[in-house]
């Protein structure tokens, strides 16, 4: 994704943050720690696969570079 996307994503996240920071008026029942755990695991589950895919992609990219460097014809 281009840099434009990243800028927009950050700007939009900023717009919604005040709403996030505010206390939750309508969710009285489940405990705060439970809600925290939901948000925490949401972030964890979302980031983890991207990190893994990213690192494997980076490893493959480096292997390709390595192989091109040792390629007899090149």
């Amino acid at each position: 994704m281009s840099r434009v996307h990243a800028v927009w994503a950050v700007a939009l996240a900023g717009l919604t943050l005040p709403g996030v920071a505010e206390a939750c008026a309508v969710c009285f029942s489940a405990t705060e720690s439970n809600r925290g755990a939901f948000i925490g695991t949401t972030v964890f589950l979302t980031i983890l696969p991207l990190l893994m895919i990213g690192s494997v992609a980076f490893y493959v990219y480096r292997r390709v570079k390595e192989m091109e460097a040792t390629e007899p014809g090149a």
């Binding site: 489940a30 405990t31 720690s33 439970n34 925290g36 755990a37 939901f38 925490g40 695991t41 964890f44 589950l45 983890l48 696969p49 893994m52 895919i53 494997v56």
Partner: peptide, 22 residues
């Protein structure tokens, strides 16, 4: 990678239920 996600799912479930307990 798929297996790591399986365990990540289990651990997330554990964390959520644990946090929901007094």
């Amino acid at each position: 990678g798929a297996e790591v996600m399986l365990f990540a799912g289990l651990i997330s479930a554990y964390a959520v239920v644990r946090a929901g307990m007094p």
